[in-house]
Amino acid sequence: MALFRSKQDVFSEDLASQIGESQTLGVQLRRMARRNKLAVASAVFLALLTLAAIFVPILSPYDPVIGDASIRLKPPSAAHWLGTDEMGRDVLTRLLYGARISLAVGVVPTLISMILGVALGVVAGYVGGMTDYILMRLADVMLAFPSLLLAMVIMYTLGGGVLNIFLALALVGWASVARVARSETISLKESEYVQAAKSIGVSGGRIIRRHILPNCLPALIVLFTLNIPSAILSESSLSFLGAGVQLPNSSWGLMVNMGRQFLYNAPWISLAPSAAIMLVVLACNFLGDGLRDALDPHLNNE
């Protein structure tokens, strides 16, 4: 996805300069907003969900932990939009409190693994040689483990809790990021503008900061949005299996697990968090696809 243009592209390049098509990040994002309504809707949905999760104490009259025993297992109603659970707690309220952890688990470990992966990948790609070899074999080893299993091992060793989930998922995720960052770096390193910077005498660190990272950025943004769902899904699986978030904290995976025994007489307890997981994952994927189409120069002129 490096912004290299071959000479065969001159035809389309020519057209691009004729009609003033632009390649800067802001313009590309605005163009996506104009063209891809699904991606925009996804972004709006994620933003609203985040706001709701933050302001749920103000928005909801119910307590997420202490229930009202008189209204146990009630189906959705005007008072309780998504019904109540076995302890008489409002499912929607718990869902939004759970969103805090689920969204945080989607974003924070992904961010950590991105930073780690980009740092290692860019260094491996730019320096090359033995450094590259060692770092990439390490990444291969990481990728060879089934990631969920690895996360479970880490969780059982360190114990449950949100911080440990962050750590486990970050450790599992960096390798694939490093690979993408490395291959981007290698193709950018061969680009003429990096060669030009070298011929001026610009230092390696500055070349990475000024030329390689900004030009990797589109690919990394896309990767970020596409990695969030897998982190959310991993957390859900871990919590569902009992290796994740521990009570009284709540995450969507844990809610699905807790509602399992009432699946026949009160299916909303499990279905609401399941649907939430699905919607967030879909929204992230739509947004990621939209960003990829907007930011990938090879698709731009189609």
Binding site: R5, K7, L25, E192
Partner: peptide, 30 residues
């Protein structure tokens, strides 16, 4: 500093995410 290079492909030799100012300033800043 005494030896510089001009490239063949004017489409590929300029960083697409830098302004003209920053491109020409790069050697001065370096």
């Amino acid at each position: 500093r005494q030896m510089q290079l001009i490239f063949q492909d004017p489409y590929a030799s300029l960083d697409p995410r830098m302004t003209v100012h920053d491109i020409v300033a790069e050697p001065l800043v370096t």
